[in-house]
Design a binder for these strands. Structure first.
Lengths: 98, 98
DNA sequence: TATTTAACTTTGAAAAACAAAGCACTTTCA
DNA sequence: TGAAAGTGCTTTGTTTTTCAAAGTTAAATA
């Protein structure tokens, strides 16, 4: 038998990063503020998790405006999509022995 | 829209505890040593995660023998089964927007 | 002009993860 | 018989991660 957790991606151990990714898979683009409210996080906490995901190049940041107000939005990258799907596959494999 | 991570169980954020539970769902009983080898962990690390799961009453410990050698085995409790399934449901709901 | 909002960064504390070593007990091997 | 090895821990201490709170910059609104 094989180590069932070896293929899980460490970046997605965090529920918050998992939540961000799952939201970005569904919604093409989401603002900082929406993520914050949806996941019920403080600014600093969200920012640091987004940073981790950006470092890994799993998400991309877009600085823009709504009217003249700044609005930062985030989207998933191809690499991020790949990694997330691989993680979900690993989870499934681990669990589908049920 | 609802917070997608609110229903995830914090105990299962850990890949190791997730791995232990997934193994115990499939195999009725597993020894300390087998878990250790399968998950590639040090004694201390495994023991502390098992302790967390035991505290939560998600697993039960059985001290026994194989021949005359001591052998501690672990099994999942009904509560553990419930909690794990609820976690998997939450994961699925989070992801099945795909 | 004062306040608010957005999106951070910085700081620091608390919690969690982890490896290594020690330990009690038993068994096996030389 | 004595040394080495295995099982299943606990203890210790370090590293990593998480997180909240406060500070920051810049623009918008009252």
């Amino acid at each position: 038998m094989k180590n069932p957790i070896a293929d899980l991606n460490k970046i997605f151990d965090s529920r918050i990063r998992l939540g961000v990714m799952s939201m970005l898979i569904v919604n093409h683009e989401i603002s900082f503020n929406d993520l914050k409210q949806m996941l019920e996080l403080t600014d600093g906490n969200l920012a640091s998790h987004l940073n981790t995901l950006e470092q890994a190049q799993f998400i991309a940041v877009h600085k823009g405006f709504i009217g003249r107000k700044t609005s930062t939005t985030y989207s998933i990258t191809d690499l991020g999509k790949q990694a997330f799907k691989a993680h979900l596959d690993a989870l499934e494999k681990m669990i589908n022995k049920l």
